[in-house]
Amino acid sequence: MKIRTLRLLAKEGTANVYKNKLMSFASLITIMTTLFVLGLVLLVIVNVISNLEAKKQDLQVKFYLRVDASRMEQEEVAMFIENGRASGVVSEYQYESREQAYENAKKDLKHESLMEGLTPDNFAEGYFVSLTDPNDSDQFIAKLKLLSGIDSQWITYPKDELDKITGVVRVFNYAAIFVLAVLMIISVLLISNTIRLTVFARRKEIEIMKYVGANDWFIRFPFIIEGMIIGLLGALLSHLLTSQTYGWIKDGLNNLFSSIKISDLQLIEFDQFAIRILVVYIIFGTTIGIIGSLMSVKKHLNV
């Protein structure tokens, strides 16, 4: 097909959006609401994942130096951790000196008698390290073991908990893909139903075009453009609706969480995901529009 013809047909499709106002509106609402539902479901999943990821950050590698570690060895460990922070492997850490360890122990142990005869020198220096990427923990621990100042049996990391969280995050990731797929299918069915009505109303037109000798693409193309435009408009409107609704829900829930003291649960900002959601919406909206158009025109082309 020539460019000239494509341009002509694109113009035709654009004009049809306006000429068939009612059907365009119905399709637009359908796309908008399905994308809206899709977006909210995705945002719930993203929130669950992001809160779980935040939980992962709370998991710390804890280790203690040998009580008899030399000054050189102490400095070597301090240097290693500082380097880790500089290179971004370590996100933050707390250092516990012998004195602090002694004080903490005194606080924890209610019976003074148990502390009798102990001085800070009997305690080891400790580090509590948060990793930027909890998945690096194995590697990080392996390196710690190479440092002679560290008592390798006192390196601990809640690996079980990490694995559990990682497992749950994976489940939610699959859930996201599943939800996307299901909603995609539902949307296509919904929209093709709406477009089918449009096409049914215009089947006579299609028939005439066929009798005059138009080939299938000549007939399909304007419908594709029409579906694309409606899909795009639906995506944009839905994005607006989603951002407003989400902002409202987020404020409400964050207030609720802080009022019932679960302040470590935090809903993410919409702005963080605004672009990604818009891209998903546009891809979905236009694809749904195009597939819907193709499906509903198909039946009437066999004249």
Binding site: M1, T5, K19, I208, Y211
Partner: peptide
């Protein structure tokens, strides 16, 4: 045809032109 079968949302001119647009 007996029932004319013109495209309802096109003018007379565009209906005739349509047959030529099809053959590019």
């Amino acid at each position: 045809f007996q029932d004319f079968r013109l495209l309802p949302n096109k003018t007379a001119y565009d209906n005739v032109a349509f047959a030529m647009q099809i053959v590019e």
